[in-house]
Design a protein around this nucleic acid. Sequence first.
DNA 1: TTTTGTGCAAACTATTTGCAAACCG
DNA 2: CGGTTTGCAAATAGTTTGCACAAAA
Lengths: 131, 131
Amino acid sequence: MTRQRQLIYNIINAAPEHRTAEEIYDLARAEMPSLARGTVYRNLGLLVQSGQIRKLEMPDAPARYDRERRPHPHLICQVCGQVEDLVAPEELLGPFSIMTPGVTLTGYDLKLYHVCPACQAGKAGPVARKA
Amino acid sequence: MTRQRQLIYNIINAAPEHRTAEEIYDLARAEMPSLARGTVYRNLGLLVQSGQIRKLEMPDAPARYDRERRPHPHLICQVCGQVEDLVAPEELLGPFSIMTPGVTLTGYDLKLYHVCPACQAGKAGPVARKA
DNA sequence: TTTTGTGCAAACTATTTGCAAACCG
DNA sequence: CGGTTTGCAAATAGTTTGCACAAAA
């Protein structure tokens, strides 16, 4: 594991936030200004492959990365895009498989949408759409 | 509703397949060769907005469009990307909301993954990755 | 020293947009 | 006519890649 990969991993692992590649790039460059954007993407890909982090595809927005390794649903604000991890029963595929008779499920992706308190208050969505 | 929008709508509504914008563009051009790609995207956006079709974001692949208007989960082959609609209880948000106390859910997106029979048979995935 | 990873820049893919002309009501 | 929509081409956003050099095993 190289210095740059370690740095990227640390940034993701340090906080529960779900950051975009660009956000991670900015944070990382504060500490290692020579870091290249391509290196960030490459290492994010490798970290996802090796199961150390989790990629979270977002609707009409850049992907975000999650330090939480175990599969779990996400709660997403449909106004500002803020993401929260949800705790769910250990095994969700069991219940889900009643909808897919005869099929062996290998994974799931569950996103639940709402309007977060901040966005309900300030009508215009206090957090920028892509923040 | 213009001729081009009608055509695009008809293509989606004619079959249960979940096509990409590019596939729809190709099919539409068979019938109206002057049709522009931009027009396809614009109309897909409008049709989604007006609730006549549904957009389905795909992991690491172009979005697909679904003629089925009611919210429902999807079953996706993780090898070839083939998509199937699932039938689910009328109201899934109810059960889901046990995971989000105090939150009013506005919608959901549930994708279940498996390996389709075709891909299980031909080890190399008979259907192309983006087909 | 052999492999692997990096920085940089250019390439790519999916999608969006500005604009003048064509269409529709 | 007068706003809407089109076709075209250029622009964007996010991400990927080729390559020569640097770092790690």
